[in-house]
Nucleic acid binder design. Sequence first.
RNA 1: GGAGAGGUGGCCGAGUGGCCGAAGGCGCACGCUUGGAAAGCGUGUGUGGGGCAACUCACCGAGGGUUCGAAUCCCUCCCUCUCCGCCA
Length: 422
Amino acid sequence: MLDLKWVRENPDAVRSAAQRKRVAVDVDAFLDLDLRFRKQQQAVEAMRAELKAAAKELGRMSPEERAQALAGQQETKARLKEAEAQEQELRASHQEQALLLPMPPAAEVPDGIDDQDNVELRRVGDPPDFDFEPLSHIELGEKHGVLDIARGVKLSGSRNYLLLGELARLEQCVLQHALEHMIGRGFEPVSVPTLVSYACMEGTGYFPGGEEQAYLAERDQMSLVGTAEVPLTAIHSDEVLAASRLPLRRVALSPCYRREAGTYGKDTKGLYRVHQFWKVEQVVIGPNDEEWSIAEHQRMLGHATELMEELELPFRVVNVCTGDLGQGQVQKFDIETWMPSRNGYGETHSASRFYDFQARRLKLRYRPEGGGKPVFCHTLNNTVIASPRVLIALLENHQCADGRVRIPEVLRPRFGADFLGS
RNA sequence: GGAGAGGUGGCCGAGUGGCCGAAGGCGCACGCUUGGAAAGCGUGUGUGGGGCAACUCACCGAGGGUUCGAAUCCCUCCCUCUCCGCCA
């Protein structure tokens, strides 16, 4: 949600934001509607003021006088009712359209159409140079009897899977390690609901627009989240926090659910694109300060890249282009990890900053130091680790000539062995 | 699932038809006091929209209704708590 006063004063900035992000939003139509809505609002308010004043008079009148004056009151009430109906109509479409206005991307976001135009910022680590024919994670998983996609599909349809034995354990080790990685950096671990209200989805910017991607429990008007960003960010919605509590740094390990509608035929093999996965997600709620947000964004990115280095995985960081940005995102950095079977980098992390876009929708505010009006917070989020996608990288990059998979040093104490499949 | 109680400002809590946007307290801000602090005293302090000035409208869980007039009466829904039942 944008500040509508700002939108009225800076229509060009909104037009340009829409253009850069390649979203179809008619700013002029919105401004026109906005004007008509406010006019109608004023008309309604004038009538209400009239009625209110008259009601006070009536209270003081004698019964005979009152009987006479009632007729006029009834007539105004009838007119008001009509005007209110129109106002309601205008308000509904006004709100609907306001929710679609795009947050302007930061100046340093590259222009582009889709992920092809994302700009690589840096590479860390070198893709492995195998002196044997490397296997895909599917082949590796089947070879060791730790991955069963066919039966996952039998249970739940396409894009479902079973991890067994050592691979199931490895997954838990990675997730636990990631969680502790963040706790060690001052983040508070939180166990969150993953079945949430529509308000949470709208507040974080996924609805309206993302309904196709979410599993809905329609009978209960709930939605399964695609990321713990949703509950974590919405924890303090409709609240006014004390400034001293900020920033709130939190991390959650949760299951995530995505319908992956419109991806038929894309990444159909293996564990890359699945309907259900685990993710450790970091979310920060901070003060309304762009400088601070920018710095925190880098810190959060660092938390994830440090972990990837610990896991000894080659990756690169990309500056996501305007066309690939979400409606509310100001800037986004993706971490893409090398996956030999793809012979390329595959997205494993996504770090976004929103400024007050989500906070406005969530009514997430704080009272500034020294009192004063409540101010909307800034919010940011980033993946710490997502599984099974990271398992692709772990299995494929660390495979040995004999088919075993080397476990990175940091995970060995937890995993209890140096290799998977020995 | 059955029975009951309740949802009021940043928080607690009074308020059963007009004098209530709402007592009182806490918290917070400013001032006094102090060597400094605490305590104490005084003053101020809800949110959002429109106008952007005076001012005005809305909001006492949400939505409807009754009434000239609703925090207060009626209906529906949501949520919380207690007891019972069931159960991970």
